[in-house]
Design a protein around this nucleic acid. Sequence first.
DNA 1: GATGAATGAGTCTTCATTCAT
DNA 2: TATGAATGAAGACTCATTCAT
Lengths: 199, 199, 199, 199
Amino acid sequence: MKNEEEVKDEILAAARELIQQYGIDKTTMRDVARVASKGKSTLYYYFKNKEEIFDAVIRDEHDELYLKVKKAVDSEDTMEEKLKTYLISKITTLVQKRKQYAFLIENESHHFNIKNFFTLSFEVNGERELAFIRSILLDGAKNEGYNFDVSGVIGIDVLSDAFMTYLRGVEIEVSLNRGFESINEKADLMVKILLKGLK
Amino acid sequence: MKNEEEVKDEILAAARELIQQYGIDKTTMRDVARVASKGKSTLYYYFKNKEEIFDAVIRDEHDELYLKVKKAVDSEDTMEEKLKTYLISKITTLVQKRKQYAFLIENESHHFNIKNFFTLSFEVNGERELAFIRSILLDGAKNEGYNFDVSGVIGIDVLSDAFMTYLRGVEIEVSLNRGFESINEKADLMVKILLKGLK
Amino acid sequence: MKNEEEVKDEILAAARELIQQYGIDKTTMRDVARVASKGKSTLYYYFKNKEEIFDAVIRDEHDELYLKVKKAVDSEDTMEEKLKTYLISKITTLVQKRKQYAFLIENESHHFNIKNFFTLSFEVNGERELAFIRSILLDGAKNEGYNFDVSGVIGIDVLSDAFMTYLRGVEIEVSLNRGFESINEKADLMVKILLKGLK
Amino acid sequence: MKNEEEVKDEILAAARELIQQYGIDKTTMRDVARVASKGKSTLYYYFKNKEEIFDAVIRDEHDELYLKVKKAVDSEDTMEEKLKTYLISKITTLVQKRKQYAFLIENESHHFNIKNFFTLSFEVNGERELAFIRSILLDGAKNEGYNFDVSGVIGIDVLSDAFMTYLRGVEIEVSLNRGFESINEKADLMVKILLKGLK
DNA sequence: GATGAATGAGTCTTCATTCAT
DNA sequence: TATGAATGAAGACTCATTCAT
């Protein structure tokens, strides 16, 4: 017999599957119940309401995403590689997710919701991503001799901020399905642009 | 006596107001009718359905946005100023819009939709923005001696692409209400980062 | 410039066309207006309301039907031929009309309305059809020596009534698209059944 | 405590009541819900949509009708009595139903729909009625010495077909409220007409 | 004489949520 | 613990009709 936590997870799994495919608004409690093989009212036994369920789903999803990227980055050695890996790993993961929605692209009427998902992602991971990037740059300054304070204008804060902003642009572009065939190259170039003249 | 176009505009104005406040999904035809001081069915006299109305609204809104930014940029002389102005004018306009939604930040249940609006913005203006930025860089190369082909890696395409991506990140950040108190400074810095070493 | 009667006729023609295809309930004033190339409100200038239009249409339609059948029958000489022609000409005409609706047969959702049309037909022509049939039988008795009062049970009234009832059954069957490939034979047989032993 | 089937039946009962009074088009889900003392959405818990409800009602209604007539006929002994009973019992039952609509006769605007009901009846019971009548005639031929093949023209198929067609005419006439005060006599006469000279 | 514009009332349907069991 | 049953509220959309011009 399952305990409370397990049932909750089953429900969240169902909700996640649906939210990824249809977005929040178009996913109904009935859908979730069906996929979770539960009665509709059972959802209300475990969660206060729809919002609580979908909030949990989103938080989970983005946690995962952040952890995955972080792990990839941590396995790199140099700052430049870390930054590139950050970009590449994030894009790759997002593109992957994007594929799950593939069919929605054609289906214009749904297409608001796909983006919704991506947009939310930023809100959840914002703070820790920025902190993480800063720490990468900091390490670069300490261990690899980068100098971010050239001519008094550019500093670590400025650069990590810029990197973050760029990252967000990338995410949106993925969500809009812009071609990202040459991810590696693009990441390479961007890192070059940002870092040129800083060492 | 109003002609057809005027009435349509009245309806679109009402729809726009509501879409900005509540997002598409939460805005009902009844709401639009009420705000436009029309009967619900009147909307259907002028538009085929909900989608047609909201499509028009969004297209208008983004047209406006693009034109406003373009105008501001065109009034500048140097490439660097143009790029800065691009960022500043876009951010400023978006922040302004953002204020209209202010109260929604508290109102968690609505907040998905705000972002919806921004996300769509990208889709509509994508192409022409990129082209516009390229033309700015091109002029810079021709008239101001910028050289984007240093060390074989960076070119106009790469840079305009990077600028666009960054721009998108900025838009998202605005939509998430990240502080943009020091817009001018931030724009200044970013342009410096992108252009450093290219002249 | 057209006079009132002409415009009314144009409207009725449009209405008739639509009623035949879609039935009364599914035909809207807007449809009629469009087909008649008039403004919707113009219909209300010429007719009090929807009902008045459709009433007129039906009356016309059935008038035509009756007249056509009567003409065919009158051109025959003997009673037996008249009765057969009555059946054949009515069935043929109805089958013809039926063909205009052909596509509706597949389209289940519409199929109530087709029948509606036929049913109404009975109401309008009832009286005069009965009278007409009686007169045919009467002529037969007078001129051809038929004796409808055999064994005290059957009389002209009984027989004309039976013929009428049978006729109605035929109409319904046509409306339900029952095969009527062998109309002539069927008419022949029925008349034989009814008249057998009466001369 | 009611089980699913019971509730469904309650809803169908309400729907039937209304359909009989107002016809399908004019009966709304709201009406049905009110009469069934249920919430409007409850109907959708038990049935997929309006069509499913009204389909069920009609099918039930006609099933009943057929069974009732069949039972009455089966209790008779001779072919002649069976045929008469068929006519009488059918007419009687229909007239009875007709009374439920009585007031609609005045109410012109509704009167299309009444007929709708009758018309549908034919479609549903068509096949089995014909088969039943054939079997009655067959028995008559076998057990009572009727000979339907006189003079090479009339056969069982022809006669059962004629009887059915006549029956349908009767149904329509009932639906149009033609007087059927002397049902027994009329049935008697018709059977005589059809069978005269066949034994 | 003709109609564009406007609409109130109503239709079917969906959904999150509650509650008795 | 789990859910079947029930529903209020709302949503998009349609239509016959009116009326000022």
